[in-house]
């Protein structure tokens, strides 16, 4: 009798959790996103930032070609990272027999997307105005805010990752010349760390 209701309670909790949150995020998504970010960050440093004067709180006049190169590199990194995250999520949920594009994932993408798109557009504006130094801290901060916002609709560890990114972003804003290093730690190492922890837990 008692056992039955205990298992009922467990079932209720599980159903509430599964029905309201998207839980198919796979650890490999985090790891692959982190590795792609590290490569992208390194290429940005080698091809662009190492040739610029030290980053500071004023707009920098663009050197010909570098704006386009940076945009191309950023778009490529973003595209590969999203593709990898989606690939591993789909692969993970196939083995677990879960639906991918359902009410939960739609809600997650929407709530992740609003702060992310806002930050992305703001960074594009700043880039065109020459404030290159603000890109690393602001992408960290907005990505962190987006993750914290979206964490209500997915596994709760995402919130911690988001908070880590926000802190790194604020630190990067204090030490602008180290921006790319903080960016690498946040988008690279923190995502890899998150992925490894998730894999470990599974």
């Amino acid at each position: 009798m008692e056992e039955k209701y205990k298992s009922d309670l467990a079932e209720i909790r599980d159903m509430m959790h599964r029905s309201s949150r998207f839980i198919s995020l796979d650890g490999w998504s985090g790891i692959s996103v982190g590795i792609i970010a590290l490569i992208g960050g390194y290429l940005a440093y080698r091809n662009i930032f190492s040739r610029l004067p030290e980053l500071d709180y004023y707009p920098m006049p663009h050197v010909d070609g570098q704006l386009g190169q940076l945009l191309f590199l950023a778009a490529g990194t973003l595209f590969l990272a999203i593709a990898a995250a989606i690939f591993f999520t789909i692969r993970g949920s196939r083995t677990k027999q879960e639906a991918i594009w359902d009410a939960q994932s739609k809600r997650l993408v929407l709530n992740l997307g609003i702060p992310l798109l806002t930050g992305g557009l703001l960074c594009l504006i700043l880039l065109f105005k020459g404030f290159i130094a603000f890109l690393a801290p602001l992408t960290l901060i907005f990505h962190g805010l987006a993750l914290v916002n979206a964490s209500q609709y997915t596994i709760k560890q995402i919130r911690i990752l988001g908070l880590v990114l926000i802190i790194l972003g604020l630190l990067a804003m204090c030490f602008l010349h180290l921006g790319l290093i903080f960016w690498g730690i946040g988008f690279g190492l923190a995502h890899i760390g998150y992925g490894v922890i998730m894999k470990w837990k599974q």
Binding site: I12, M15, M16, S19, A99, A103
Partner: peptide, 16 residues
């Protein structure tokens, strides 16, 4: 019980 648990935490859910 499962149907109810899912519906109390979501505004609505479809059949699928």
């Amino acid at each position: 019980l499962g149907i109810m648990s899912a519906l109390v935490v979501n505004a609505h859910l479809d059949f699928k």
